[in-house]
Design a protein around this nucleic acid. Structure first.
Length: 680
RNA sequence: CGCGGAGUAGAGCAGUGGUAGCUCAUUGGGCUCAUUACCCAAGCGUCGCGGGUUCGAAUCCCGCCUCCGCAACCA
C-alpha cells in the first residue's frame, strides 16, 4: 500500500477507431489520465503515458463494408481525427500508437505464440453460423430474424429488443444475415480459448485480498465476476481483418480483438522506447489503467490473466474506472450522433481547450453517471473560470501595472494576516497531492481553484487600492504576496489546465516552476518585470450556448426523420383471400390489466372477446398504464396460436398501430360495440 | 428473484457510527483594483421509501422503489 515506486506507466483505454472521440470518453478516461500524468511529470517522476487506436474487430469491418471502402481506410480516417484532436486538447501522451502497426502485429503474435507453445490455450471445435454470400462467420448479433415470442421481425440472434427475451440464433424464425441478407448455414470451426477459470485463484487473491482499496464500482464488478465463476474465453475469430493467428493451419483466423487490444499498450511502449521492459517487467514500476466502466472486466480480469499466463509482466496497481457521462439528460450515443465530438468542439471553441478540460474534470462521473449540459458548461466558465481564476490573475497583474509599471515590488515585513494567508496557501499542496494520488480529480481541481480563491480573498481583505493612499510601503508587500499567489496558480492548475498555466507564465514572464515549489512565496524576485496582462478566460454568451443546443435539437430531428423513413416498411407479399379469411379478429373489451412482474414491457390483460374471457400477454407496458387500459375496447386476433410468456399462456394478440417514433396506439372502434363483433 | 454501481439543499457533488458539508445559483450586506467580476453573511435538507441494530445511523443490517452499466465489443 505504502510501497514506493521508482517509475510509473500510465495507460489510457484505446479508443475504438470506428468513430471520433467525444466528451464521454474524455470525462471518463482521458482527462483523468492526463491530469495524473502531468502531475507526476511536474513532480519530476519517471512516468510514461501510452495510448493508441484500437483498430481491429468486427464493427470496423461492418462499417467498411457499408461504406464500400477497406477497413484500413476506416481506421486511417478515425485514427488521424482522434490523434489530432487529442493533441489539440493538450493530451500529453508520450506516444499515441495504433494496433494496425507492424510493432503491434509482432508483439501480439509473439504473445500468442508463447502461450500457445506452452500449452496455455485450449482448443475447441464448434459449429458457427456462416454467411456464404459474404464469406464470413456471423456473430449472433449479426443474425436477424423474427422473434418467436413477439413476432418482431427485427430481432437479433442474441436478443429481441421489443419483448426483451434472450434468444439464440436457432430460435429465430426466418433467420438471415445482417451483412448480406443470405440465410446463414452452420459450419465447423476451431478456435483457441484462454481458460480463465484456471486463473480464478490467482485473481481472487490478487484483487479481492490484495486490492481492497480499488474503487467500489471496480472492486464490486470484479468480485461479482469471480463469484460467478469464470469461463474459458475464445482468443481467435474467423475474420479477415486483424492479426493472423500465428499458427500452422490457422488460415482465415485472426486474434480476437479483446486479446490483441490490451497488448497494444505494450506495443505502444515498445514504439516509444527500447527500454520498454523496465516499464512492463520491473516490480518497481507502478502501472495504472485509466478506463471506463464498461472495460472493467477486461482490465481487471482478462488482461491480468493474460499477463500472468505469459509471465514476467507486472500487473496494474490500480484501475480507476469512471462511470458514464450523459449529454443533456440522455445517453451519449455514437450511432445516434448524440454527442459533443472533441474535434468539432476544438473547431467551434478555439482557444477554449482548458474550458472543456475544466468542465469535464469538475463534473467527471467518478462515482456515478453524471450529466453534461451546455448551461452548466456556460455557468462553470462564467462563474468559476472567468470570475474566480481569470479575475484574480487579472486583478493582481493590473494592480502591478498600475502602481509599479509592471515591476514586482519588494516584500516588507509581513503582518499576521499575511502569514495566515501564506499558511493557507502552503496547506493546499498536501490536499491536492492526496486527492490526485487517490484519483479524486474533482476534489483536486477544487484544491487548485482554492489558490485563486485565497488570492481573491487576500486582495479583498487587504484592499491595496485604499491603502495606497495612506501607506504605499504596505501595498508593496501586499502586491508581492498577491503576485506570489499568482505564480502558485500556474503550478496548481498545470495538470488540469496546461494552456492557461502556460499563458500565466508568459504574462509573468517566468519559466515553468516545479511541483515542489507549490506553496512557496519566493517564486518571483523583487525587481522582475512582468509581461503584458491579457484576459485568461472570456465570458461565454447565451447565443453561443443556444447555438449548441440548436445543433443538438437538429440532431434529434434528423434522427426522428431517419427513423420515420426506415420505419415505413415495404408492402408485404400478396396473400389470398382465403389466407385473410383465416384471421379471426374480434372487438374485445379489456376487463383487467396488470404488469407482469420482473419484466419491463409485458402487461397481462384479461379481455372479454365475446367468445370467452381470456388472458393475453402483450409487450406494451412502456406505452400504457394498466389503469388507462381497463374498460377500453380493442381489436384482438383471437385465433393466433397460444404462446407462453413468463409462465403465462397468452391466447391472442392485441392489434396496435405503431408510429414513426415507435409509439404504440390502440386500434379501437369509433363507437362502442358488443364484444365479439367480427372484424373483416 | 442474473450481477455490479448510484439515489444527500434549486443544480452538480463530498461525506462509512458522534452538531449534515462544498461549488454554483438565490437573498441581504460590503468593496469599487478587476471581465458587473471579488469578499462577508443568510436562507434553502423528512440524506430514495419502510423496518431493524445502537446511547447515537446519511453511514451498519434486512426488505422495497427508481436510474445507469455489465452479461450482449460505444468511456
Amino acid at each position: 500500500m505504502t510501497k514506493q515506486f521508482k517509475r510509473y506507466l500510465v495507460t489510457s483505454a484505446l479508443p475504438y477507431a470506428n468513430g471520433p472521440v467525444h466528451i464521454g470518453h474524455l470525462a471518463g478516461v482521458y482527462i483523468p489520465s492526463d491530469i495524473y500524468t502531468r502531475y507526476l511529470r511536474l513532480k519530476g517522476c519517471d512516468v510514461i503515458s501510452v495510448c493508441g487506436s484500437d483498430e481491429h474487430g468486427v464493427p470496423i469491418t461492418m462499417k467498411a463494408r457499408k461504406e464500400g471502402v477497406s477497413p484500413q481506410e476506416i481506421v486511417d480516417r478515425y485514427h488521424n481525427i482522434i490523434r489530432k484532436a487529442f493533441r489539440d486538447l493538450g493530451m500529453s501522451f508520450d506516444i499515441y500508437s495504433r494496433t494496425s502497426s507492424a510493432t503491434h502485429a509482432a508483439t501480439a503474435s509473439e504473445f500468442f505464440r508463447k502461450l500457445y507453445n506452452e500449452g496455455k490455450f485450449i482448443e475447441q471445435t464448434t459449429m458457427q453460423y456462416y454467411d456464404e454470400e459474404a464469406q464470413t462467420f456471423l456473430a449472433d448479433r449479426y443474425i436477424v430474424g423474427t422473434c418467436p415470442h413477439c413476432q418482431n421481425e427485427k430481432a437479433y440472434g442474441d436478443q429481441c429488443e421489443q419483448c426483451g427475451s434472450t434468444l439464440s440464433p436457432e430460435e429465430l424464425i426466418n433467420p438471415h444475415s445482417a451483412v448480406s441478407g443470405a440465410v446463414p448455414v452452420k459450419r465447423e470451426t476451431t478456435h483457441w480459448y484462454l481458460p480463465l477459470d484456471q486463473y480464478e485463484g490467482f485473481l481472487r487473491k490478487w484483487i479481492l485480498e490484495g486490492h481492497k482499496e480499488w474503487k467500489s464500482n471496480v472492486y464490486g464488478q470484479c468480485k461479482s465476476w469471480l463469484d460467478l465463476g469464470l469461463q474459458p474465453r475464445a482468443v481467435s475469430r474467423d475474420l479477415d481483418w486483424g492479426i493472423p493467428v500465428p499458427v500452422e493451419g490457422a488460415e482465415g483466423k485472426v486474434l480476437y480483438v479483446w486479446f490483441d487490444a490490451p497488448i497494444g499498450y505494450i506495443s505502444a511502449t515498445k514504439d516509444l522506447t527500447p527500454d520498454w521492459e523496465r516499464y512492463w517487467k520491473d516490480k518497481d514500476t507502478k502501472m495504472v489503467h485509466f478506463i471506463g466502466k464498461d472495460n472493467i472486466v477486461f482490465h481487471c480480469i482478462v488482461f491480468p490473466a493474460m499477463l500472468e499466463a505469459h509471465g514476467g509482466y507486472i500487473l496494474p496497481e490500480n484501475v480507476p474506472a469512471n462511470e458514464f457521462l450523459n449529454l443533456e439528460g440522455e445517453k451519449i450515443s455514437t450511432s445516434r450522433n448524440w454527442a459533443v465530438w472533441l474535434h468539432e468542439y476544438l473547431e467551434e471553441f478555439p482557444g477554449k481547450e482548458d474550458v472543456l478540460r475544466y468542465v469535464l474534470c469538475a463534473n467527471a462521473p467518478e462515482t456515478k453517471d453524471n450529466d453534461f449540459t451546455w448551461k452548466d458548461f456556460q455557468a462553470r466558465n462564467n462563474n468559476e473560470l472567468v470570475a474566480v481564476l481569470g479575475n484574480f490573475v487579472n486583478r493582481a497583474l493590473m494592480l502591478t501595472q498600475k502602481y509599479y509599471e509592471g515591476v514586482v515590488p519588494p516584500r516588507g515585513e509581513m503582518i499576521e494576516y499575511d502569514r495566515q494567508t501564506v499558511a493557507d496557501l502552503a496547506a493546499v499542496k498536501g490536499s491536492l497531492e492526496a486527492n490526485i494520488e487517490n484519483y479524486h480529480f474533482r476534489e483536486a481541481l477544487k484544491d487548485a481553484m482554492t489558490v485563486a480563491r485565497i488570492g481573491n480573498k487576500y486582495l479583498a481583505d487587504t484592499e491595496p487600492w485604499k491603502v495606497i493612499k495612506s501607506d504605499p510601503e504596505r501595498v508593496k508587500t501586499i502586491l508581492n504576496i498577491a503576485l506570489q499567489i499568482t505564480a502558485n496558480v500556474t503550478i496548481a492548475i498545470e495538470p488540469f489546465m496546461p494552456f492557461s498555466a502556460e499563458k500565466i507564465l508568459r504574462m509573468l514572464d517566468i519559466q515553468p516552476l516545479g511541483w515542489e515549489r507549490l506553496g512557496a512565496t519566493d517564486l518571483l524576485d523583487a525587481g522582475h518585470r512582468i509581461g503584458t496582462p491579457s484576459l485568461l478566460f472570456e465570458k461565454i454568451e447565451d447565443d453561443v450556448i443556444q447555438a449548441q443546443l440548436d445543433k443538438l435539437a437538429a440532431t434529434k430531428a434528423a434522427n426522428a426523420a431517419e427513423e420515420t423513413v426506415q420505419s415505413i416498411d415495404p408492402q408485404k407479399d400478396s396473400i389470398s383471400f382465403d389466407d385473410f379469411q383465416k384471421m379471426d379478429v374480434r372487438v374485445s373489451t379489456i376487463l383487467a390489466a396488470e404488469k407482469v412482474v420482473k419484466t419491463k414491457k409485458l402487461l397481462k390483460l384479461t379481455v372479454d372477446t365475446g367468445i370467452d374471457t381470456r388472458e393475453i400477454v402483450s409487450g406494451i407496458a412502456e406505452h400504457f398504464t394498466p389503469e388507462e387500459l381497463v374498460g377500453q375496447q380493442v381489436l384482438v386476433l383471437v385465433n393466433l396460436e397460444p404462446r407462453e410468456m413468463k409462465g403465462i399462456l397468452s391466447r391472442g394478440m392485441i392489434l396496435m398501430g405503431e408510429d414513426a417514433s415507435g409509439k404504440l396506439v390502440l386500434l379501437k372502434p369509433d363507437s362502442r360495440v358488443n364484444s365479439g363483433a367480427v372484424v373483416g
